[in-house]
Each structure stands twice: as structure tokens, then as C-alpha cells.
């Protein structure tokens, strides 16, 4: 049943995206040298990626801090951040099982370009890096709960900004001028934009390494920041209830 609704809603969203972009392209042909079929590929793949990236394993942190149940995890000989990461990966895998049939359906419905294997591999690697960056971003966001217990407002803002600036909805190549260059310098680009632009071929093979390096840089930075935040947080964690 869940699979059915999931597939249904996905098929609908793929269809709407295609209709939207087709209509937009009818007004203004091929902005930024991205032909319509590439754009539809981009949007469809972005949608499938979002199914995986929107699973937020670290949401647990917030709930557990609010309810005080994090105490139970802290009393076990485990690395709690690693536990949250595994939990996230587990949820993602479970989700992926649901995604596979949707994927088949979507591919039947719209024409999606399938790049050569090398590009596909580069995409997969870049996606993996993006997944980890996304994890740490979520982790940092949810860790705010250690300080305020109220994280809703911050999360909403970051979510909104990241939806727009990650390239999930609009390719970052569409942003004009200096702003266009700025968004590539933000960490959000490492999540959706880089893997997607590799997929549709906007980032040529010669530049893959550079883009990977930028992703890895963000990953290292966020990883270090998360470690630091976790250290500070677990020193001042206040267990609710008792």
C-alpha cells in the first residue's frame, strides 16, 4: 500500500515537472545551453535524489533531546553520532526499496538520458559525497536542539535556503551574474548541483576532480564542525526528566 502511494505520487510529480519545464522552454528556448531533454533529465534525477536525501536520520537527535531518551543511547558504549548516521543509512536503504519500482515507472513515462558508464560512476561517487555533506548539515541543524530545544525556525529557514541554492529545483547555472558564481561557492551546491551537473554533462570529465575536491572540502569542514559541536554539546547535555 505504502509502495503504491509512493509510486503514484512520484509518477505525478515527474509528470508535472516535465509539463512545467516543457512550458517554460516553449517561452524561452534553451537557457544556458541546457536543452529541454537535459533539463527534464536533470529535474527527474533531482526528484529521485530527493527521495533519498530527504530522509533525515538526524531528526532523531532533536526528538531524543526533547524527550530525554538520548540518555539511554549515551549510557551505551557506542558513538552516538555514528549511531544516528547508521540509522539514517538504514532508513535510506529501506526507502530505496520503495524508490526502485518508482524509478522504473518514471523512466518508462518520461525520456531520461542515461549517460555513459564513466559519467554514471562519477555521478554515483559525487552523490555519495553529497549524501554525507547533507548528513552533516542535518546533524548540525538538529544539534541546535542541545542549546535551545527549539529548532523549528532555524530548520525552516535553512531548508528553504538550501532547497533554492542546492540546485534541487533550478540548476545553479541559471542564476545570473555574480550571484550565479556565489551559489557555486556555497556548501549547498555540493549536495544536489554537483552530482546533477555531472550527470547531465554540464561538468565535463576534465573538471570532475576539481568538483570532487570542493565536495570533499565541504565534507571535511562539516565533519570537523560536527565533531566539535558534538563534543561541546555532549559536555553540556542536560537530560530532560528523571
Amino acid at each position: 500500500m505504502e509502495v503504491l502511494t509512493e509510486v503514484g505520487s512520484l509518477v505525478l510529480r515527474v509528470y508535472l515537472l516535465r509539463a512545467l519545464w516543457t512550458a517554460l522552454y516553449a517561452q524561452n528556448a534553451a537557457p544556458m545551453n541546457l536543452p529541454l531533454h537535459s533539463m527534464i533529465t536533470y529535474a527527474t534525477v533531482a526528484l529521485l535524489m530527493s527521495l533519498i536525501l530527504e530522509v533525515d536520520g538526524t531528526r532523531l537527535i532533536r526528538e531524543k533531546i526533547r524527550e530525554g531518551t538520548i540518555a539511554t543511547d549515551l549510557m551505551k558504549p557506542i558513538s552516538v553520532p555514528l549511531y544516528f548516521f547508521s540509522d539514517g543509512v538504514g532508513q535510506t536503504l529501506l526507502h530505496a526499496v520503495l524508490v526502485v519500482p518508482s524509478l522504473a515507472f518514471a523512466l518508462l513515462m518520461v525520456h531520461v538520458d542515461v549517460p555513459p558508464p564513466a559519467t554514471l560512476a562519477a555521478f554515483a561517487f559525487s552523490f555519495l559525497l553529497g549524501y554525507c555533506v547533507n548528513f552533516f548539515l542535518n546533524f548540525l541543524m538538529n544539534s541546535i536542539a542541545f542549546w535551545t530545544l527549539e529548532t523549528f525556525a532555524v530548520q525552516l529557514i535553512v531548508r528553504w535556503v538550501s532547497d533554492l541554492l542546492s540546485g534541487q529545483i533550478i540548476p545553479l547555472t541559471f542564476f545570473p551574474g555574480i550571484f550565479g558564481r556565489l551559489v557555486f561557492g556555497l556548501p549547498f551546491a555540493a549536495i544536489y548541483s554537483t552530482p546533477l551537473l555531472i550527470y547531465v554533462g554540464v561538468i565535463p570529465a576534465s573538471q570532475w576532480m576539481t568538483y570532487f575536491a570542493v565536495q570533499i572540502l565541504w565534507l571535511a569542514l562539516f565533519g570537523a564542525l560536527s565533531t566539535f559541536v558534538w563534543r561541546a554539546a555532549s559536555r553540556r547535555v542536560v537530560i530532560q526528566g528523571g
Binding site: G68, T69, A71, T72, L74, M75, K76, P77, I78, S79, S234, R235, G241, G242
Partner: peptide, 21 residues
């Protein structure tokens, strides 16, 4: 304990009547 939480965790067992582990 708070400096080596994980090592400490191996030595101890805890039952909180009000919450389950």
C-alpha cells in the same frame, strides 16, 4: 565517567524505572 563515557558504559548497567532502554 564523563571523560570516558564509553569505557564507563561497559562497567555499568542502569535501570530507570520511569523510562525504558
Amino acid at each position: 565517567p564523563y571523560e570516558h563515557r564509553k569505557d564507563n558504559a561497559r562497567n555499568i548497567g542502569v535501570v530507570f524505572g520511569q523510562r525504558s532502554q
